[in-house]
């Protein structure tokens, strides 16, 4: 997924529409508004309904005529098959995603601090060049990358993927932290400097303690994008040592279309990222291109 995140929560509506005598027109508009909102709600939820319902279907529900109906009998066999296939991959994915997110967040935080406060010759060109790394199609580096990772002796699977998610996560983590730190009152850092604190002391004692909101966003972002990654996983792992996206696609694209197991598997594989969204989603959206539009 992509690149624009800020540390701002989505702002609430500023006051409601001015109170006016409810004309017929206004009532019609309001009805239309809620009707549209509900229609779109149903459309967005439709695939979720299909996933849920199909995952509980047994062989008796295999006919196309029953495609959209509820299961005749709610069976959990599909869930069992999916769990057996995916459980080892889930463990591997966690062991890949957590270190990858933490390491890239820490490095990004230091980079962001440096780039937001300290001007060295060419700082702006360096920042722009780092930013470009965020947008490149990885296809344009993949072939030499496979060779490089091999010649560095990094084992295929989890270790390779941690390395790649850290390295290619650096541009976005740096960007988010830089924009966050740009909003920190200058006096705070100046005071530390007057007190004789060096760069690292200032970072550790002033900056790090106020960085929680940015860390939440960055960790979430890195967790989600590494969890959902398929491209790197395909080139740098296989179904025995790879993450859950590989195992899920393996399960779902087999010769026998085991729909109940694949749909249960899709749900299982999505639980961690969905939980992250439900719990922390409000920190996640708002602003654009890490605030660049608002200046």
């Amino acid at each position: 997924m992509s690149t624009a995140v800020t540390t701002e929560a989505l702002p609430e509506a500023k006051g409601t529409a001015p109170v006016r005598p409810a004309s017929g027109n206004a009532v019609a508009m309001r009805t239309l508004k809620y009707a549209l909102l509900l229609v779109f709600l149903c459309i967005v939820l439709m695939p979720a309904y299909v996933l849920f319902v199909t995952s509980f279907k047994g062989i008796g529900d295999a006919t196309p005529t029953r495609a959209w109906r509820l299961p005749t009998e709610w069976e959990t066999a599909g869930w069992q098959r999916a769990w057996e296939t995916l459980a080892p991959a889930l463990v591997r994915t966690f062991s890949m995603v957590i270190p990858a997110a933490i390491i890239s967040a820490l490095i990004g935080s230091m980079n962001g601090f440096v780039l937001s406060r300290w001007r060295f010759p060419g700082a702006d060109i360096v920042f722009t060049l780092i930013l470009f790394g965020m947008f490149i199609p990885y296809q344009a580096v993949m072939i030499p990358l496979v060779q490089l990772v091999q010649s560095l002796g990094v084992p295929s699977g989890v270790p390779s993927l941690i390395l790649l998610h850290v390295v290619y996560g650096l541009p976005i983590t740096t960007l988010i932290f830089r924009n966050y730190y740009a909003g920190v009152p200058h006096e705070l850092i100046e005071a530390a400097r007057v007190d004789g604190a060096g760069l690292l002391r200032t970072y550790a004692s002033i900056i790090l303690p106020i960085s929680m909101p940015a860390f939440v966003v960055v960790l979430m972002w890195q967790f989600t994008s590494a969890w959902n990654d398929y491209l790197f996983a395909l080139f740098f792992s296989n179904s025995r040592n790879g993450p859950v996206t590989i195992s899920l696609n393996f399960l779902a694209s087999g010769q026998l279309q085991d729909y109940s197991a694949s749909m249960a598997g899709a749900l299982i594989a999505s639980v961690p990222t969905l939980l992250v969204y439900i719990l922390l989603g409000r920190y996640f959206v708002g602003g654009l291109m890490a605030g660049s539009v608002k200046g």
Partner: peptide
């Protein structure tokens, strides 16, 4: 509620949503 529902598909991987969309 509307916002959360409209947004949730973004949390899902293309691989997982591909499973259901291949069926659809």
């Amino acid at each position: 509620l509307f916002r959360a529902v409209y947004l949730f598909p973004m949390a899902v991987s293309f691989i997982a949503s591909g499973v259901v969309w291949r069926w659809l």
